[in-house]
């Protein structure tokens, strides 16, 4: 970047003004998080007496956090059990679909692709009723897979979690396909042709050329998709419902609600326990996340 987009050089008043605004925005975006964090470490007493965004020196406690972890541990386990395979499979299927629709040329592929892309924008409400009926009446996994629930000791509630996983895979495929396709379009056609002349089959080209080249894109897709699936509430509410297999977003809703006085320190601690996996992913792979959302 040259100096072109500058109107002045050096640290003029204008520049200081810009930095002041940008820092003000940092405060704006981080304040709710900051307020949440400091509150989560306060005792109920200190919470009532101190400013929401200032740490309470006298009333520091980790009790809220340990209570939150206690109440959320089942949800945490269930969310991991659901989100990890759902993320991996939707990314893998998205990559394969994008390859089949991009690097292999055949008529009508754009039409098929449009159906995939449109799938990104479907509001979940438009399918909730059928999905619930499908998983309860048409594909009753709790009956079909009964031996598994018995053997693993998970209980039939977990059939709902499996159904949720499959649903998330299906709904993750469109966006994953979009992400991979925009990447595969930039892969040189001549290179794929060279591999064909070299005697590689369509499957081998994927395995030996496309897949190794997709590693950076897998990082982007996995991160974005993990965040989306982890954060979802609606599908979990309808497909899993209340019970042993509830995911963490479901558990979070109920926390601190039933008490007579809203226990904000506990709620904040619970919110951060819920957000922790996505926050960690974001802190370590923020760049990939940004790529994912702008694709």
């Amino acid at each position: 970047m040259t100096q072109t987009r500058l109107d002045d050089d050096g640290l003029s008043l204008d520049r200081i003004g810009i930095y002041a605004i940008l820092l003000g925005l940092v405060v704006f975006y981080l304040l709710p998080l900051e307020a949440g964090i400091v509150t989560s470490f306060k005792t109920m007493r200190a919470y009532g007496q101190t400013a929401p965004f200032l740490p309470a020196l006298g009333g520091f406690t980790v009790a809220q956090w340990s209570s939150a972890v206690d109440q959320l541990s089942a949800g945490l386990f269930n969310s991991v059990l659901m989100a990890v395979p759902a993320t991996v499979f939707s990314a893998l299927l998205g990559s394969m679909t994008a390859y089949g629709l991009t690097n292999i040329d055949w008529r009508g592929q754009v039409g098929v692709y449009v159906l995939f892309v449109a799938g990104i924008f479907v509001p979940y409400q438009a399918v909730l009723v059928p999905l619930k009926r499908f998983w309860s009446q048409w594909a009753p996994l709790h009956i079909w897979l009964e031996p598994i629930w018995n053997l693993t000791g998970l209980g039939t509630d977990y059939a709902g979690l499996l159904a949720l996983t499959i649903t998330h895979i299906a709904y993750g495929i469109p966006i994953c396909t979009l992400l991979f396709r925009s990447y595969y379009k930039s892969v040189s056609d001549e290179m794929v042709e060279a591999a064909r002349l070299d005697g590689a089959s369509i499957r081998r080209i994927y395995r030996r050329i496309i897949l190794p080249l997709s590693v950076p894109m897998f990082a982007v897709t996995l991160i974005y998709q993990f965040t989306q699936i982890w954060n979802d509430l609606l599908f979990a509410l309808i497909i899993v419902g209340p019970g042993d297999a509830s995911v963490i977003t479901q558990s979070l809703i109920g926390i601190g609600q039933s008490e007579a006085v809203t226990n904000f320190p506990l709620q904040m601690a619970a919110a951060f326990v819920t957000a922790l996996p996505t926050l960690l992913v974001y802190i370590f792979f923020g760049e990939q996340f940004a790529k994912g959302v702008t694709a």
Binding site: P32, N231, L233, L252, Q267, T274, L279, Y282
Partner: peptide
């Protein structure tokens, strides 16, 4: 930093 809130769940941001 500006993009950070987007990575959070609606459930989390609602609580905040």
């Amino acid at each position: 930093i500006y993009l950070l809130p987007m990575s959070l769940s609606f459930v989390v941001t609602a609580k905040m």
